[in-house]
Design a protein around this nucleic acid. Structure first.
Length: 255
DNA sequence: ATGCCAAACATGGTTTGA
Protein backbone atom coordinates (compact mmCIF):
# COMPACT_ATOMS: atom_id res chain seq x y z
CA UNK A 1 0.00 0.00 0.00
CA UNK A 2 1.43 3.35 -1.03
CA UNK A 3 0.41 6.59 0.65
CA UNK A 4 1.63 9.95 -0.64
CA UNK A 5 1.42 13.60 0.35
CA UNK A 6 1.60 16.38 -2.24
CA UNK A 7 1.28 20.13 -1.70
CA UNK A 8 0.02 21.04 -5.17
CA UNK A 9 -0.06 24.85 -4.75
CA UNK A 10 -3.41 25.41 -6.44
CA UNK A 11 -5.46 22.59 -7.94
CA UNK A 12 -6.80 24.97 -10.60
CA UNK A 13 -3.34 25.65 -11.98
CA UNK A 14 -1.94 22.19 -11.17
CA UNK A 15 -4.63 19.76 -12.35
CA UNK A 16 -2.71 18.53 -15.45
CA UNK A 17 0.42 17.89 -13.34
CA UNK A 18 -1.64 16.15 -10.66
CA UNK A 19 -3.28 13.86 -13.23
CA UNK A 20 0.13 13.07 -14.79
CA UNK A 21 1.52 12.12 -11.41
CA UNK A 22 -1.50 10.01 -10.37
CA UNK A 23 -1.31 8.08 -13.67
CA UNK A 24 2.38 7.43 -13.27
CA UNK A 25 2.82 6.96 -9.50
CA UNK A 26 -0.55 5.26 -8.89
CA UNK A 27 -0.62 5.88 -5.12
CA UNK A 28 -3.37 4.06 -3.23
CA UNK A 29 -3.94 7.23 -1.19
CA UNK A 30 -2.85 10.79 -2.01
CA UNK A 31 -3.15 13.55 0.59
CA UNK A 32 -3.23 16.96 -1.08
CA UNK A 33 -2.59 20.40 0.42
CA UNK A 34 -3.00 23.98 -0.79
CA UNK A 35 -5.95 23.28 -3.06
CA UNK A 36 -6.70 27.04 -3.07
CA UNK A 37 -10.22 26.20 -4.18
CA UNK A 38 -13.70 26.17 -2.67
CA UNK A 39 -15.48 22.81 -2.27
CA UNK A 40 -17.87 23.53 -5.14
CA UNK A 41 -14.98 24.31 -7.54
CA UNK A 42 -13.11 21.05 -6.91
CA UNK A 43 -12.64 19.11 -10.21
CA UNK A 44 -14.43 15.96 -9.03
CA UNK A 45 -15.10 14.65 -12.55
CA UNK A 46 -11.40 14.73 -13.53
CA UNK A 47 -10.32 13.03 -10.31
CA UNK A 48 -13.01 10.37 -10.69
CA UNK A 49 -12.00 9.78 -14.31
CA UNK A 50 -8.44 9.20 -13.06
CA UNK A 51 -9.76 6.39 -10.86
CA UNK A 52 -9.86 8.12 -7.49
CA UNK A 53 -12.44 8.92 -4.87
CA UNK A 54 -12.02 12.38 -3.33
CA UNK A 55 -12.81 13.83 0.09
CA UNK A 56 -12.37 17.60 0.01
CA UNK A 57 -12.07 20.24 2.73
CA UNK A 58 -11.67 23.29 0.53
CA UNK A 59 -11.41 27.05 0.98
CA UNK A 60 -11.59 29.89 -1.51
CA UNK A 61 -8.14 31.23 -2.49
CA UNK A 62 -6.09 29.78 0.35
CA UNK A 63 -5.31 26.50 2.12
CA UNK A 64 -7.59 23.53 1.41
CA UNK A 65 -6.81 19.82 1.84
CA UNK A 66 -8.07 16.63 0.22
CA UNK A 67 -7.71 12.87 0.44
CA UNK A 68 -7.76 10.95 -2.84
CA UNK A 69 -8.08 7.16 -2.69
CA UNK A 70 -8.53 4.23 -5.04
CA UNK A 71 -10.81 2.58 -2.46
CA UNK A 72 -13.75 4.49 -1.00
CA UNK A 73 -12.85 6.46 2.12
CA UNK A 74 -14.95 7.22 5.20
CA UNK A 75 -14.42 10.70 6.61
CA UNK A 76 -13.59 10.71 10.34
CA UNK A 77 -12.64 14.35 10.97
CA UNK A 78 -13.00 17.63 9.07
CA UNK A 79 -10.92 20.48 10.50
CA UNK A 80 -8.55 20.22 13.44
CA UNK A 81 -10.41 20.16 16.78
CA UNK A 82 -9.62 22.62 19.55
CA UNK A 83 -10.67 26.03 18.18
CA UNK A 84 -14.19 26.58 16.87
CA UNK A 85 -13.19 30.05 15.62
CA UNK A 86 -10.52 28.66 13.27
CA UNK A 87 -11.84 29.07 9.70
CA UNK A 88 -8.76 27.75 7.85
CA UNK A 89 -9.06 24.42 6.02
CA UNK A 90 -5.91 22.60 7.06
CA UNK A 91 -6.95 19.16 8.36
CA UNK A 92 -8.93 16.25 6.95
CA UNK A 93 -8.95 12.65 8.16
CA UNK A 94 -10.49 9.47 6.77
CA UNK A 95 -10.41 5.68 7.05
CA UNK A 96 -9.17 3.94 3.87
CA UNK A 97 -8.30 0.26 3.48
CA UNK A 98 -8.14 -0.18 7.26
CA UNK A 99 -5.81 2.77 7.81
CA UNK A 100 -6.68 6.16 9.29
CA UNK A 101 -5.10 8.82 7.06
CA UNK A 102 -4.81 12.54 7.82
CA UNK A 103 -4.01 15.26 5.28
CA UNK A 104 -2.29 18.11 7.12
CA UNK A 105 -1.37 21.62 6.00
CA UNK A 106 0.42 23.10 8.96
CA UNK A 107 0.52 26.92 9.03
CA UNK A 108 3.63 28.54 7.54
CA UNK A 109 4.03 31.02 10.41
CA UNK A 110 5.93 33.81 8.66
CA UNK A 111 6.76 36.46 9.69
CA UNK A 112 8.08 35.17 13.02
CA UNK A 113 7.13 38.29 14.99
CA UNK A 114 3.37 38.49 14.99
CA UNK A 115 0.08 36.62 14.91
CA UNK A 116 0.95 34.17 12.12
CA UNK A 117 3.77 32.59 14.12
CA UNK A 118 1.55 32.46 17.21
CA UNK A 119 -1.15 30.75 15.11
CA UNK A 120 1.38 28.20 13.86
CA UNK A 121 2.44 27.25 17.40
CA UNK A 122 -1.17 27.18 18.63
CA UNK A 123 -2.14 24.95 15.69
CA UNK A 124 0.77 22.64 16.54
CA UNK A 125 -0.48 22.40 20.14
CA UNK A 126 -3.95 21.41 18.89
CA UNK A 127 -2.34 18.81 16.63
CA UNK A 128 -0.41 17.42 19.63
CA UNK A 129 -3.69 16.93 21.49
CA UNK A 130 -5.50 15.31 18.57
CA UNK A 131 -2.54 13.09 17.61
CA UNK A 132 -2.23 11.84 21.19
CA UNK A 133 -5.82 10.67 21.00
CA UNK A 134 -5.14 8.86 17.74
CA UNK A 135 -2.16 7.06 19.26
CA UNK A 136 -4.24 6.09 22.28
CA UNK A 137 -6.77 4.49 19.94
CA UNK A 138 -4.05 2.04 18.79
CA UNK A 139 -5.45 2.23 15.27
CA UNK A 140 -3.06 2.23 12.28
CA UNK A 141 -2.63 5.94 11.50
CA UNK A 142 -0.66 8.03 8.99
CA UNK A 143 -0.30 11.78 9.59
CA UNK A 144 0.69 12.97 6.11
CA UNK A 145 1.30 16.50 5.03
CA UNK A 146 3.20 19.72 4.71
CA UNK A 147 4.49 20.37 8.24
CA UNK A 148 6.14 23.68 7.34
CA UNK A 149 9.09 22.77 9.58
CA UNK A 150 12.66 21.87 8.71
CA UNK A 151 13.13 19.50 11.67
CA UNK A 152 16.95 19.70 11.65
CA UNK A 153 19.59 21.90 9.97
CA UNK A 154 20.08 19.07 7.47
CA UNK A 155 16.52 19.68 6.26
CA UNK A 156 17.32 23.14 4.85
CA UNK A 157 19.77 24.21 2.15
CA UNK A 158 21.11 26.96 4.40
CA UNK A 159 20.68 27.65 8.11
CA UNK A 160 21.92 31.18 7.53
CA UNK A 161 19.40 31.98 4.79
CA UNK A 162 16.64 30.52 6.97
CA UNK A 163 17.74 32.08 10.27
CA UNK A 164 14.68 34.34 10.56
CA UNK A 165 12.24 31.95 8.87
CA UNK A 166 9.39 30.38 10.81
CA UNK A 167 10.24 26.95 9.38
CA UNK A 168 13.62 26.82 11.17
CA UNK A 169 12.84 28.47 14.51
CA UNK A 170 13.66 26.53 17.70
CA UNK A 171 9.96 26.69 18.70
CA UNK A 172 8.86 25.15 15.39
CA UNK A 173 11.47 22.40 15.63
CA UNK A 174 10.58 21.69 19.25
CA UNK A 175 6.90 21.40 18.33
CA UNK A 176 7.68 18.88 15.58
CA UNK A 177 9.98 16.92 17.93
CA UNK A 178 7.28 16.88 20.62
CA UNK A 179 4.80 15.45 18.13
CA UNK A 180 7.14 12.70 16.90
CA UNK A 181 8.17 11.89 20.50
CA UNK A 182 4.57 10.90 21.29
CA UNK A 183 5.44 7.66 19.51
CA UNK A 184 5.27 8.45 15.80
CA UNK A 185 7.81 7.32 13.21
CA UNK A 186 8.86 9.79 10.50
CA UNK A 187 8.63 7.46 7.49
CA UNK A 188 10.93 9.49 5.25
CA UNK A 189 13.69 9.77 7.87
CA UNK A 190 13.30 6.13 8.93
CA UNK A 191 14.28 5.07 5.39
CA UNK A 192 16.73 7.96 4.79
CA UNK A 193 18.14 8.71 8.27
CA UNK A 194 20.79 11.23 7.19
CA UNK A 195 21.58 13.56 4.29
CA UNK A 196 19.41 15.90 2.30
CA UNK A 197 16.07 14.60 1.12
CA UNK A 198 14.32 17.76 -0.01
CA UNK A 199 10.60 17.98 -0.78
CA UNK A 200 10.32 21.72 -1.61
CA UNK A 201 12.26 24.13 -3.83
CA UNK A 202 11.35 27.83 -3.97
CA UNK A 203 10.32 29.26 -7.34
CA UNK A 204 12.84 32.10 -6.85
CA UNK A 205 16.65 32.19 -6.65
CA UNK A 206 17.01 29.37 -9.17
CA UNK A 207 16.37 27.12 -6.18
CA UNK A 208 15.44 24.03 -8.21
CA UNK A 209 18.41 23.95 -10.65
CA UNK A 210 20.77 24.77 -7.77
CA UNK A 211 19.11 22.19 -5.49
CA UNK A 212 18.47 24.76 -2.75
CA UNK A 213 15.61 22.88 -1.11
CA UNK A 214 13.81 22.21 2.14
CA UNK A 215 12.56 18.94 3.60
CA UNK A 216 9.16 19.79 5.07
CA UNK A 217 6.66 17.22 3.76
CA UNK A 218 6.47 14.12 5.94
CA UNK A 219 4.37 11.05 6.75
CA UNK A 220 4.27 10.11 10.44
CA UNK A 221 3.37 6.49 11.17
CA UNK A 222 1.75 5.01 14.26
CA UNK A 223 3.77 2.18 15.88
CA UNK A 224 1.87 -0.65 14.21
CA UNK A 225 2.30 0.92 10.78
CA UNK A 226 5.98 1.67 11.39
CA UNK A 227 6.48 -2.10 11.62
CA UNK A 228 4.96 -2.38 8.12
CA UNK A 229 7.18 0.31 6.52
CA UNK A 230 8.85 -0.96 3.34
CA UNK A 231 10.17 2.16 1.62
CA UNK A 232 9.80 5.94 1.42
CA UNK A 233 10.89 8.60 -1.02
CA UNK A 234 10.33 11.82 -2.91
CA UNK A 235 9.19 11.96 -6.55
CA UNK A 236 11.75 14.66 -7.38
CA UNK A 237 11.16 14.54 -11.12
CA UNK A 238 7.70 16.07 -10.61
CA UNK A 239 9.44 19.32 -9.59
CA UNK A 240 11.25 19.49 -12.95
CA UNK A 241 8.05 19.62 -15.04
CA UNK A 242 6.68 22.75 -16.70
CA UNK A 243 4.20 24.51 -14.42
CA UNK A 244 5.28 22.30 -11.50
CA UNK A 245 4.26 22.84 -7.89
CA UNK A 246 7.08 24.09 -5.68
CA UNK A 247 6.67 20.85 -3.66
CA UNK A 248 7.37 17.30 -4.87
CA UNK A 249 5.18 14.30 -3.95
CA UNK A 250 6.49 12.44 -0.90
CA UNK A 251 5.42 8.87 -0.09
CA UNK A 252 5.71 5.72 2.00
CA UNK A 253 4.97 2.14 1.03
CA UNK A 254 3.60 -0.28 3.60
CA UNK A 255 3.43 -4.03 3.74
C1' DA B 1 18.08 45.49 2.35
C1' DT B 2 15.40 43.90 -1.65
C1' DG B 3 13.82 41.27 -5.54
C1' DC B 4 13.85 37.14 -7.41
C1' DC B 5 8.62 33.35 -8.92
C1' DA B 6 3.86 31.72 -8.74
C1' DA B 7 -1.20 31.53 -7.70
C1' DA B 8 -5.79 33.65 -6.55
C1' DC B 9 -8.78 37.32 -7.24
C1' DA B 10 -9.58 40.65 -10.26
C1' DT B 11 -8.63 43.20 -14.37
C1' DG B 12 -4.27 46.75 -11.02
C1' DG B 13 -2.08 45.59 -7.61
C1' DT B 14 -2.37 43.27 -3.17
C1' DT B 15 -1.91 39.08 -0.37
C1' DT B 16 0.10 34.80 0.53
C1' DG B 17 3.41 31.48 0.26
C1' DA B 18 8.26 29.04 2.67
Amino acid sequence: MRIATFNINGIGARLPRLLDWLAEAKPDVACLQELKCADEKFPHADIEAAGYHALVHGQKSWNGVAILSKSPAVETQRGLPGDDADEQSRYLEAAVDGVLVASIYLPNGNPILGPKFDYKLAWFARLHAHAAGLLASELPVVLAGDYNVCPTPEDAFSERAMADNALCQPESRAAFRTLVAQGWTDGLRAVHPTGKIYTFWDYTMGAWPRDLGLSIDRLLLSPGLADRLLDAGVDRHARAAEKASDHAPTWVSLR
